[in-house]
Amino acid sequence: MSNAIMANGLSVKFADNWVLNNISFEVQNGIIFGLLGPSGAGKTTLIKLLTGQLQQDHGSAELLGKDTRRLTALEHEQIGAMMDNYGLYDRLSVYDNMSFYADIYRVPHSTIIDILKSIGLYEARNTAVSKLSKGMKNRLSLARALMNNAKILFLDEPTSGLDPATTKEIHDILVEQKKKGTTIFLTTHNMFEAESICDYVILLSKGHIIEHGKPTDICRKYNHLNKLHVTLKDGMELMLENDSTSASAIKEYLEKNLIEAIHSTEPTLETAFIELTGKGLE
């Protein structure tokens, strides 16, 4: 599978502070790639670099095989972006915002209705953006990013501050886009989001990559306990070794129908992050 994005030794300095330091990674086509890190880790800076809004001090980056410092109209037309602070026209209605970008992208206006329906904003199409809730603004910003059938979607904190139901709706939309072959590059500090929808993540802290891999692989890697947590129906909790030595005990409990739940002691991404940095993701 070819790469949609490639970063090699990217470093960016603001004043005397290295915001990104020697960042290297590859994003395969058609996956959901998560950039996980706390506020101030350098996530938005990295998106700006990859979309050509900012230039690195060292290293190189390629988007669809093209140097990000020399992106042309062709590459820009294949990018959809949802940035941290929307960039929507507050006084215009939902429909007028979409209609403006339909003109910019040369997309038929009939597409607007389809997108608004798919993203649940059709009923609010005549409402001014200033009157929308945060969740609706997020969805509109995403709708705009989806307008031009982009090959790569850059989403900066797409579900930040949203309620679980709206977050789930946005996740469903992203998974649907992935099925259509879109590569999605999202930043988040929500470890649940990263674990549930991302195929591959990198953990970023203070401008450095501190870990990368599939979320399940990272969780497994930091499973130092490697035990099974068994809860019995009578409320008793047991910690058993996660190997063949526990097989007979578990078999016995199962045969007697005593088991309420079995969990592995695999950590979450957040636990792994805390282990690596000593700090949480919020």
């Binding site: 979309t51 050509g52 809004q53 109209a73 820009h76 037309e77 990018i79 972006a81 940035m83 602070n85 929307y86 960039g87 929507l88 026209y89 507050d90 970008y101 910019i104 992208y105 705009r144 031009n148």
Partner: peptide, 13 residues
């Protein structure tokens, strides 16, 4: 200020 210009420039304007 409202970032609409940045999004526009990113949209190939």
């Amino acid at each position: 200020e409202k970032n609409t210009l940045r999004v526009l420039i990113m949209s190939n304007v």
